[in-house]
């Protein structure tokens, strides 16, 4: 699967569609609040969706490793987490840029911002933990256990807690549901770009992660041959 070219071509086509239609699609006139910055829906939000996709894949491989210890599963788990972390940094950075012009400051201690930062730090600790162990098997096993813990911290910090309190992110009043973009601010035409954006950017993340996996597998093979 990871060597098949069709999904890479699909990624390219989807992202080209997103990067052009993201600017061409008509946006609603929301009393001048968001203006064109609402188009960040096709670029900032998918960073987080991609991070979720990669971290979810990572935790699946962590569980597979604990069921049947094989260094292949560990490599998949590690490299998907690594790429996911890159996308979470991109999400924080792009969010800060948007917040600077929308909320007046790059960081205003918004519950969703804080929650995302905590989640990112928890994932950073995964790499610190792995780096502090010297034995490869221990590294993989403890890493896998911690990975599961980190994943189950990720959900409350970015999906549940921001929904319970008031947030600068629209719709963060608990009952309204989505602490991302207010569903009333988007049109069906925008959703036609948003959904491909989520899929396209996620596929791009998966592509980068599989490249890292392949390099790691090659390195391992080399070590075994020596």
């Amino acid at each position: 699967m990871i060597h098949k070219p069709w999904w890479k071509i699909l990624t390219f086509l989807i992202l080209m569609y997103v990067c052009t239609m993201g600017f061409l699609v008509d946006i609603p006139k929301l009393d001048g609040r968001l203006q064109h910055s609402v188009r960040n829906l096709f670029f900032h939000v998918p960073m987080w969706i991609t991070m979720m996709t990669l971290f979810s894949t990572s935790v699946v491989y962590a569980i597979l490793y604990l069921r049947k210890p094989s260094s292949k599963y560990d490599i998949y788990s590690l490299e998907f987490a690594r790429t996911g972390l890159i996308f979470s940094f991109l999400g924080l950075a792009t969010g800060a840029i948007w917040a600077n012009y929308q909320w007046g400051a790059p960081w205003s201690g918004d519950p969703k911002q804080n929650g995302a930062a905590i989640a990112v730090l928890i994932y950073c600790a995964y790499f610190v933990l792995r780096g502090s162990l010297t034995d490869d098997e221990k590294k993989a096993r403890i890493g896998a256990v911690y990975n599961i813990f980190a994943f189950f911290m990720l959900f409350p910090t970015i999906w549940i807690l921001p929904r319970l309190v008031e947030s600068l992110h629209p719709g963060g009043l608990g009952s309204e549901g989505n602490p991302g973009l207010n569903p009333n601010d988007t049109t069906s035409a925008m959703k036609m770009v948003m959904v491909p954006a989520f899929i396209g950017w996620s596929l791009l993340g998966v592509w980068i992660a599989t490249l890292r996996v392949r390099v790691a597998l090659l390195k391992e093979k080399q070590l075994n041959n020596e």
Partner: peptide, 17 residues
């Protein structure tokens, strides 16, 4: 901006390929 973004993404894709 669209042209800039498309160029960046194209460049990244060429690099990835």
């Amino acid at each position: 901006v669209m042209a800039v973004v498309v160029t960046i993404v194209l460049g990244l894709f060429l690099y990835l390929i």
